[in-house]
Simulated scan of single mutants.
Amino acid sequence: MAPFNTILLLGATSGLGESAAKRLLGQGKKVIVTGRRQARLDALKAEDLETYAMDVSDIAAIPKHLDTLFSTYPDIDTVWINSGIATRYSVKDINSCTDADLTLEVTTNLTAAAIIARHTIPHFLARGEDVESHFLITTSGLAFVPIPFFPVYNACKAGLHYFLVSLRQQLKDSPVNIIEIVPPFVATEYVVKNRDEAPKNLQAMSLKDYEDEVFAQLDNIPAKELKEVAAGPSVLRVKTWRDGLGAMIAKPFAD
């Protein structure tokens, strides 16, 4: 089983986050799920998950929310960020999105994660040198190989990847493990509903196959050894980066 005991899953009321929450709950873990939609939170609470209403795009409120969560659940040893939004737009067409759309996308996907890390990592370190903790973010295979119609989403996910590489370098001698989850195109509820928007030759990996592949690594490989946990087509993308630019980065800074 995954080495996590009490997990705070941020942005996990649907899709990959909800799937991970239920998988961990099935392993007997204590799981706290956050999200914006109260109806989804109520449905998950009925399935024995702990829930908490929180919108990560409200940056100013994040520290207070985290203080409340860590006070309510002092045994949290894992924080896993799944929240994210993708805006499909063309730079050729100014009407395909608004400035507010792009600002919200960067805030939700990248800025919020940095703020959450800033307030979470010191809390984990304060638990002591012998107490292992885990900080995870779900990025995307698009962090490594972008596609043209989600330009800001691609950039945010690439930024998260390098953000996690940097955190891992800073924390290499600490008990805090930094893990990046790298999904491919997965057949989540959202993807199924919006399949007409996807390229016709792009095949989505089933949610079950994705989950099985990710948890085969989380369940069986020591957390300290994990860096990027990829599945499906993302595996080759991560390996190519690790064997190339990743190897260059590891020379001056072991990650």
Rank of each mutant, 00 (worst) to 15 (best):
A61D: 10
I62F: 05
K64T: 13
H65Q: 10
H65L: 10
H65G: 01
H65A: 02
L66P: 01
D67Y: 06
D67K: 15
T68I: 12
T68K: 13
T68A: 15
L69K: 09
L69H: 04
F70P: 02
F70G: 00
S71T: 14
T72N: 10
T72M: 12
P74C: 06
P74I: 03
D75L: 11
D75E: 15
I76H: 11
D77L: 11
V79G: 07
W80R: 06
W80H: 13
I81P: 02
I81H: 12
S83P: 03
S83W: 05
G84N: 10
G84C: 09
G84T: 12
I85D: 04
A86W: 02
A86D: 10
T87V: 15
T87W: 04
V91H: 05
V91A: 15
K92L: 15
D93L: 08
D93G: 11
I94V: 11
N95L: 12
C97A: 14
C97T: 15
C97H: 11
T98V: 08
D99L: 14
D99I: 11
A100L: 03
D101V: 01
D101E: 06
L102R: 10
L102A: 11
L102I: 15
L104F: 04
T107R: 13
T108G: 08
T108S: 01
N109E: 02
N109W: 06
L110F: 14
T111K: 09
A112K: 00
A113I: 08
A113C: 11
A114T: 14
I116H: 12
A117L: 11
R118K: 15
H119R: 10
H119F: 08
I121N: 00
H123F: 14
F124D: 00
F124P: 11
L125P: 07
A126K: 13
E129L: 12
D130C: 00
D130M: 07
V131L: 03
V131Y: 12
S133L: 04
S133D: 12
S133W: 07
H134I: 09
I137Y: 12
T138E: 05
T138R: 05
T138L: 03
S140W: 03
L142T: 09
L142K: 07
A143C: 11
F144I: 06
F144C: 03
V145H: 04
P146R: 05
F150G: 07
P151M: 06
V152A: 05
V152W: 03
Y153I: 04
C156H: 06
K157Q: 10
K157L: 01
K157T: 02
A158G: 13
A158I: 00
A158M: 04
A158T: 14
Y162M: 09
Y162R: 11
S166Y: 06
S166E: 05
S166I: 00
L167S: 09
L167Y: 02
R168H: 07
Q169G: 11
Q169E: 09
Q170A: 03
K172A: 08
K172D: 01
S174M: 08
V176A: 05
V176N: 02
N177G: 00
I178K: 09
I178G: 07
E180Q: 13
E180K: 00
V182L: 07
V182R: 02
P183H: 08
P183T: 03
P184A: 09
F185V: 01
F185S: 06
F185W: 04
V186W: 04
V186D: 00
V186N: 03
A187P: 01
A187V: 04
T188H: 13
T188F: 05
E189A: 10
Y190D: 13
V191N: 13
V191F: 05
V191R: 15
V192D: 13
V192C: 07
